[in-house]
Simulated scan of single mutants.
Amino acid sequence: MAHIHKEFLIDNSPANVWEALREVGAVHRRLVPGFVTDTRMEADTRIVTFATGVVVHELIVDIDDAARRVAYAVVGGSLAPKHHHASMQVLDAAEGRSRFVWTTDVTPDELADSIREMVEQGAHVMQNTLKATTRAPAAG
């Protein structure tokens, strides 16, 4: 099983980043516009269309407001892993910034390189998108 782990900083408050992440049906608008061209929900399954034409069906496993974590698993679509589970979490970082942690486990191992590349591209778009959103005012 391949394990893909990506962490990066976002120049935006954890509250703002979490607000965007937890809106699981709006990935194409809130997190990775252009990289993802459409997202729609069918019950607890998110159908995501990427700019490349890849379509994945992702079961939303958990949305945890306290931990600011979303977990999902690919369960269908044009990408057909034997197993796929991922989570995205927003953590506090210094100076009002956010640390974003994205972890994916996938089999077969042959899919690791293409998924790792998608994670890298998605992380880059996400950083640019979320730093452009309005930051929450500093407390005090």
Rank of each mutant, 00 (worst) to 15 (best):
L9P: 12
V119C: 00
E120V: 07
V56K: 05
V75N: 03
A67E: 14
H124N: 15
R30Q: 15
F100Y: 15
M126I: 13
D113T: 10
V119K: 09
K82Q: 15
D113I: 06
L91D: 14
R69V: 01
E19D: 15
A43C: 10
R99C: 07
T45A: 10
P33Y: 07
V75W: 02
W102V: 06
E117I: 09
V24K: 06
E58S: 04
P14W: 00
A80I: 10
A20M: 13
L31H: 03
V101P: 01
R46E: 09
V70K: 00
A80V: 13
R69E: 09
E19S: 11
K82V: 15
Q89M: 01
L9W: 06
A112G: 01
V55F: 05
D11W: 10
V106W: 11
Y72Q: 01
N12S: 07
G53S: 05
T133I: 15
S87Q: 13
R22I: 04
E19N: 14
R135I: 09
V90A: 08
P108Q: 04
R97S: 11
T133S: 13
A139G: 12
E58P: 05
G25N: 03
R22V: 06
M126Q: 08
R97H: 12
D38K: 15
M126H: 00
A20V: 10
G34V: 02
A71E: 12
D109G: 02
P108T: 05
V125P: 02
I115G: 00
D64E: 02
F50R: 07
V101T: 07
T129N: 08
D109H: 01
A86K: 04
G96H: 09
A26Q: 13
M1D: 08
D65V: 11
V125R: 04
H83V: 11
